Amino acid sequence: MDPAFIGLVVIILVALAFDYTNGFHDAANAIAVAVSTKALTPRIALALAAVMNLVGALLSTEVAKTVGAGIIDPPEGNYGLEIVFAGVIGAIVWNMITWWYGLPSSSSHALIGGLVGAALAAAHSVQWMGVFEKVIVPMIVSPLVGFGLGYLFMLTILWAFRGANVARANRGFKTAQIFSSATMALGHGMQDAQKTMGIMTLALYTAGEIDSFEVPFWVVLSAAAAISAGTYAGGFRIMRTMGRRIIQLTPAGGFSAQTVASSVMVTTATVFAVPVSTTHITTTSIMGVGSTRRLSAVRWGVAGNIVVAWVVTLPAAAAVAAGAFYVTNFVVG
């Protein structure tokens, strides 16, 4: 059997493994708030998130094209497959490290950092303007938008329901959180599953199996299924951080944070086609909502640790991917 074809199959399987780890690593983004407010039980929340991740992944491929063709120049041949393979390995290793320590870092930035690190190790061309415009700028802007909108939306909710019966309002917001959780998972599928689609399509293009950078339907379906399965497997370590350690939210606060975060994710996927971090947006939306109570209500120490993980993710995943490329190139070569 052709070694290049075997290499392609390995990369596809590794990319799907990354997609699976992305599912259980980021599952908490969609459901932690609803679970912490007792709007949903963990298993029901995970099942809902898995289904909606699947639906979201099937809706669009624009982010996939950005990740696959807008970060590094599509490489060619076996050398190119080594770059793609090493990039995905870097992302998986960093995902597992941050999952183990319960840090909600960005799987998106781990994957992008992995691609860049592997390309640099191979002395391959990186589209630095694309990295700046489609990764760095959204990485800075989207959390700020999440925090600001979370703060303003929660203020609006507090004003609109200022005279409502608290117990009745809480019951209503718990019901509303079922829908906001579903929308969160939809946005997660539209963002994160597409990134794996982009990697798989890049591998197919590099191997000469497809002539243009159009995502095949079987790639869409398999990536959607992998992230959905990973989501249902759960992410309870990170769920504790997202749902309780940053701030203990009320049902109204949980609904506000999820509504804001899902709106930002869906908008960036459909309107701007840029890969943003669902983790960043969700965390800062929670922080914005919590700040309406009082700034001291947010556990800024925990939030600070999360921010450190955000900053470190790109270079750390790049470093791991560079190491993986050198090892792969030595073994293959």
Rank of each mutant, 00 (worst) to 15 (best):
I6K: 13
I11P: 00
I12L: 13
I12M: 14
I12E: 04
V14K: 07
A15M: 06
L16F: 03
F18I: 01
D19S: 14
T21R: 09
G23L: 00
F24M: 01
F24P: 00
D26N: 12
A27T: 01
A27L: 03
N29W: 12
V33C: 11
A34S: 15
T41W: 02
R43I: 14
R43M: 14
I44Q: 14
A47V: 05
A47Q: 09
M52F: 15
A57T: 06
E62T: 12
V63M: 07
A64E: 00
A64T: 06
A69N: 14
G70F: 11
D73H: 15
P75E: 09
E76M: 11
Y79D: 15
G80L: 06
L81Y: 02
I89S: 10
I92V: 12
V93K: 11
M96G: 02
I97R: 02
T98F: 03
W99D: 06
W100M: 14
W100H: 14
Y101D: 10
G102V: 01
S106T: 09
S106D: 00
S107P: 05
I112M: 08
G113D: 00
G113W: 06
G113I: 03
V116H: 07
V116Q: 02
A119D: 07
H124E: 10
V137T: 03
F147N: 02
F147S: 05
G148C: 11
L149Y: 00
I157Y: 01
L158T: 13
F161I: 08
F161N: 06
F161R: 12
G163E: 15
A167N: 08
R168E: 14
R171N: 13
G172V: 00
K174C: 09
Q177M: 11
A182K: 04
A185G: 02
M190Y: 03
A193G: 09
A193Q: 00
K195S: 10
K195G: 06
I199L: 12
A203H: 03
A207T: 03
G208I: 07
E209R: 14
D211M: 15
D211S: 15
S212A: 14
W218C: 12
V220A: 13
S222I: 10
A223F: 08
A226L: 06
I227W: 01
A233T: 14
G235F: 09
R237P: 07
I238Y: 02
M239F: 08
G243R: 03
G243W: 02
R244I: 06
I246Y: 09
T250N: 08
G253P: 07
F255L: 04
S256H: 08
A257I: 05
Q258V: 02
A261G: 04
S262E: 05
S262D: 04
V264I: 15
M265P: 04
V266P: 08
A269Q: 01
T270G: 08
T270C: 10
V274Y: 04
P275F: 00
P275Q: 05
V276M: 12
H280N: 11
G288F: 06
R293P: 10
R293I: 12
A297F: 13
V298Q: 03
W300Q: 08
G304D: 05
N305S: 07
A309L: 04
V311S: 01
V311A: 12
L314Y: 13
P315F: 04
A316N: 09
A316K: 12
A317R: 12
A317S: 15
A321V: 01
A322K: 02
F325T: 03
Y326D: 11
T328H: 12
T328A: 14
N329W: 13
V332K: 13
